[in-house]
Write a protein that binds this DNA or RNA. Structure first.
Lengths: 301, 301
DNA sequence: ACCTGAACACCGTTCAAGT
DNA sequence: ACCTGAACACCGTTCAAGT
């Protein structure tokens, strides 16, 4: 946890290379630049760059700036990168189809036709694997630049994209909470995009924070509800129609047993169509924000 | 899944007894009443009541109405009920303190000082145990009758109660999605209460459904976000202060590495105070609903 | 009748022994 | 140097053998 500063700096630069923000041949920050940018001593900066060279991320040429090494060296062999991508893809296939509980390291290895122990050469353990799955899910759908005009269209776009993502990967909503958000830069990138969408509207940092958190809580909560049905249907192994029929019968039993009369009057259609509820809730949030921006001359509070 | 009707009816009545809605000595529905209420044949009704007698829930007295048996018989010995309650309480203690992943049947048995296999005498398996934990959590905080005046006060009350519940049991939000909502009558009771709060406001079933789902998605989503921090702090084993310091350092590293300038400006205070965000989002939902009820004379949409 | 030890079929992960 | 078989310390759950 308490990583020394030089390691943190090296890791940050390595991440820039990995993510493609720094490409082979590009100059990496000089020791002087690092001292300025990270507010550290010269020795720390030198140590950080030394570590990067040692790890093969950068190449030092005498009398010239240190540059990013060519891919093979940087990636420790291209097939290694391919391997981990293959592993993550296979893991996501299992989780998407059969649920996260079906995803064991041994099962995954079997699917890939390798001994279980081989996985640990590419991935540090199950936890990191899940993290990579989450990153891959969020990374698969980059947001457009500059995106549609107006903050409303932008917010609608990013929320719907996340909603899609959650529906595509029913495990995502519950497992995002297993990781610290910091570890998922791909998800942070979406938050950053959202914040940019709200630039220049005169919201204070506190207001911005509140709005963004509340909105993402709504999207995540809807995804949580959506996950229940997917899993229930999968576990019972029934077709959607069969499932709704037996569900109906059970529902009536429970409602009668407890005297829940109001629940019985709920609209099954709407409850089954979470997409519609999602859209409605999204518009509710947007119109709330719109009002706030327009000075909020509405009745109540 | 496809339980025969007589079993469903018996289970429903047994549940009424277990929940206290039918008390010892109370008459249970006659076979005739059952045929009417459940719309089944006489034979089915008789079979259901026969099963209840066989299971010790009810006592038949010659020439008198069938009544609920006295507790010892109904509960299969009072210490049996106590046992399962003790098991569930011990399980919740583990999950609350150390997280759901620390809760294994073997660990739980060890805490209780019994062999692991003994647990299976009181609980059908881990899945049912978790279900009982969820039911117990929701059941522990009954809503007041008739509750405060006005739908807004009522909605505020039930949402805050659930928010409290989720904060008290960090595992609750993620695991509620593991179960089908039908299996948690205690949670349904809260939804029923919420629906009663919105009685007579002229909302259509579809509108009601949408409002209630969207609101509970928000509460659940907030809980999901809240769970991250609890777990992150627990896993690192740091005090809250230490955690925020190292978190800050890591945050800056990630933000710099990816160039997330907007995220850096977010208000840490607000992000750390989810309660405030919760209150704000709740009011946002309530004012949206208020507007809708008043005919919605506001700008936009 | 009630309880539970031993066993089964799984896990995630490590590490020394292989190539 | 790279790979992996065997092993370890766990799981949840079953069931026959005990009392």
């Amino acid at each position: 946890m308490a990583e020394p500063p030089y390691r943190r700096i090296a890791a940050a630069i390595a991440e820039q290379i990995r993510s493609g923000r720094l490409r082979p041949g590009d100059p990496v920050p000089s020791t002087r630049a690092v001292t300025r940018e990270w507010n550290v001593a010269m020795a720390t900066a030198a140590k950080a760059l030394g570590l990067l060279r040692q790890q093969g991320w950068v190449r030092t040429r005498p009398g010239a700036a240190t540059v990013v090494a060519t891919p093979p060296a940087a990636a420790r062999g291209p097939e290694a990168v391919l391997e981990v991508a293959r592993i993550v893809r296979a893991a996501m296939d299992i989780a998407d189809d059969e649920g996260m509980s079906a995803l064991s390291m041994r099962r995954l290895a079997a699917d890939l036709g390798v001994p279980p122990t081989s996985l640990y050469r590419h991935v540090s353990g199950r936890e990191q694997l899940v993290l990579l799955m989450i990153r891959s899910a969020f990374g698969a759908r980059p947001l457009p630049e500059p995106g549609p005009d107006g903050w409303e269209a932008k917010l609608r776009l990013v929320c719907r994209l996340q909603w899609d993502l959650y529906r595509e990967h029913p495990w995502l909503a519950e497992h995002i909470s297993l990781t610290r958000p910091l570890l998922v830069p791909e998800a942070m990138a979406q938050t950053e995009w959202t914040l940019r969408a709200l630039d220049g509207l005169g919201l204070s940092p506190a207001e911005l924070t509140t709005e963004v958190i509340a909105l993402s809580a709504f999207v995540g909560g809807m995804a949580l509800l959506g996950g229940v049905e997917v899993k229930a249907q999968r576990d019972t192994g029934l077709t959607s129609d069969q499932w709704w029929v037996t569900r109906d019968a059970e529902l009536n039993t429970v409602l009668r047993a407890h005297g829940f009369s109001r629940l019985g009057e709920l609209s099954e259609e709407i409850a089954g169509d979470l997409d519609a509820v999602f859209e409605h809730g999204l518009e509710r949030h947007l119109s709330g924000l719109r009002q706030r921006l327009s000075g909020g001359g509405c009745p109540g509070r």
